[in-house]
Amino acid sequence: MHELGVVFRIIDDLTDLGKENELEKIHSVTIQLGEVSGVVPSLLTDAWKWAADRTELMKDAELIIETLPAVTFCEDCKSEYETVTYGKICPKCGSEHTYLLKGNEFLIKEIAAT
């Protein structure tokens, strides 16, 4: 929903990083995105193309998205299960006392640059 906003944030972060490391050109940026981070990869890619092309440092840089699986933990039967398939109700015991272990990550993993 706020893909363009987060793209601006990525660009700000990488602009700083570019200065710190005296980079001339960033060729690709690898993002790690949890399955339930709420960010839509295709919209993120579109927003990236639009915004990155307006910078000198990141023009034509490829955005590589790695998806991280979402896992939920059940407090009642202590099992772990796939969040996207089963949601918040534990498929093993039917409990609603569950919480997300991982899957809402949104990280800049690495960049390739010169």
């Binding site: 490391n21 060729h27 990280l107 993993k109 690495e110 390739a112 010169t114």
Partner: peptide
């Protein structure tokens, strides 16, 4: 492009805002 280097960032997008 043979001197392309990979820089590990490992930073949350929300980190600077946080």
């Amino acid at each position: 492009m043979d001197n392309v280097r990979v820089i590990e960032v490992k930073r949350s997008i929300f980190e600077s805002n946080d």
